[in-house]
Every structure is written in structure tokens, then in C-alpha cells.
Amino acid sequence: MNKIIVLAVFALFASAASAQKYMTKTGKISFFSKTKVEDISATNTSISSIIDASTGDMKFVGLMKSFKFPKPLMEEHFNENYVESDKFPKTTFVGKITNVSEVNFSKDGKYPVQVAGILEIHGVKKNVESKGTLTVKGNTLLADTKFSILLSDYNIIIPTAVKKTINNSIEITVDVDYSKAP
């Protein structure tokens, strides 16, 4: 009998813990860089991500080849010459909402959040920090933030011929809609 009670309590806690997670497979991450010749922008709308509301842990993973550019040639150069997608097919972010205790996941509203973690691009892992917003609306969450990274930090080499026209700094925009895990 005791065993059944223990199992029932365990199942209850396990279910509560799982209900604390928000997930998506259609997160959107874009980047933008202003150059003298033409602005460079791309968007990936197939980002997988999980936020654990109880701990603030957040993870992202996406394929580099799923970034879509307005010009096919830009996409080709991005994959072949810059991020070498055949060698480093994924980008990941593993981090935490450091002020998760200030977010009330059961009350609709906009909450300012701070996120810190490790971003991996081109096989290089770097610490990043960013301020953003978490919007709670029923069983959904919208996470958005903007931050900049330096291509040189990720060993992404800009060819000498275009060094003067391509900015080393790119702005990354995260715009992800989550649903509460079933």
C-alpha cells in the first residue's frame, strides 16, 4: 500500500514538473548586419527550444542551413564560406533566465528577463548575456530579445576582399512562441 502511495506522489510531482516546461519547434531567430553594399539578413523559423519555468533553464537548437536569405547567393556564401555548415551544421544555446523568480508563469503579463548562457556557432562556444521580454498569455509564452555578437569571436573569417564592406558585428533577434508542454 505504502509503495502505491509513494508511486502516486512521485507521479504527481513528475507531472507537475513536466507541466512547468514550455516547448516549440517553430522558434524564429534572425540576424541582421548593415553593410556598405547591401544589408545582410536571414531568418530561421525552425528553431527547437525548451524553457523550464521552475529553474529558468533554456535551450535552443537550429540548423545553419535552415537560415533563409533574400538572395540565394548570400545563402550559398553564408553556408560555404562563413559558417561552414557542412562541418558545423547546428547552432545551440544553453542558458538560464537568471531572474526567473520574477516571472509569474500563471499570470498573464510582460516580464523583463535577463538571460545568460553559452552560444555555439561554427563549433565555437562563447558566453553571451542579453536582456529580453517574456510575455505570458495563458498556456503560451513569447520570448524576445536582441543582442549582438562579433563574427571574429566565433572564428568566422571575413575574406580580405570584402572586409571593408562586411560588418564584424551582427545583431541577433530571438522571437520564439512557446506552448506549455502537455
Partner: peptide, 16 residues
């Protein structure tokens, strides 16, 4: 083929 979007740290999400 662009790749397999899967992360062992997020098994709940499966893989695409």
C-alpha cells in the same frame, strides 16, 4: 537534406 535538428538535451522535443 539540411540536417537532423535534434539535441540529446531536449529529448522531449523529438527530432526533425
Amino acid at each position: 537534406f539540411a540536417g537532423f535538428n535534434y539535441d540529446a538535451m531536449m529529448p522531449e522535443l523529438g527530432g526533425t
